[in-house]
């Protein structure tokens, strides 16, 4: 019998669109953002999108809405709002 090894390769969204798990979502206030990218560094699911000028946005397909980014932002530029 062919042996099934439970192996997997790194891939984006290997266990599906985790954005569906979210109950509240982070929203970036670009007027307040100082482009420090602390949110990008802290996001446990790498769903902060970082652009060339260090501005950021959220990948809502995979963001689980944990709120770590909002908690870590030093200028309160990220707000959690009901999804």
């Amino acid at each position: 019998m062919k042996v099934l090894i439970p192996k997997s390769k790194p891939a984006k969204g290997a266990v599906g669109k985790t954005g569906l798990w979210r109950t509240s979502k982070p929203v970036v206030n670009h007027n307040k953002c100082i482009k420090c990218v602390i949110c990008w560094a802290f996001c446990p699911e790498t769903t902060i999108l970082r652009f060339e000028d260090n501005s950021v946005d959220i990948d809502y397909e995979y963001c689980k809405g944990c709120g770590v980014c909002a908690n870590e932002c030093p200028v309160n530029a990220i707000e959690m709002v009901e999804d």
């Binding site: 090894i5 439970p6 192996k7 997997s8 390769k9 790194p10 290997a14 266990v15 599906g16």
Partner: peptide, 10 residues
């Protein structure tokens, strides 16, 4: 050819 063991499945 990197892979991991026992990652989550549905």
């Amino acid at each position: 050819d990197p892979f991991t063991h026992g990652n989550a499945v549905h």
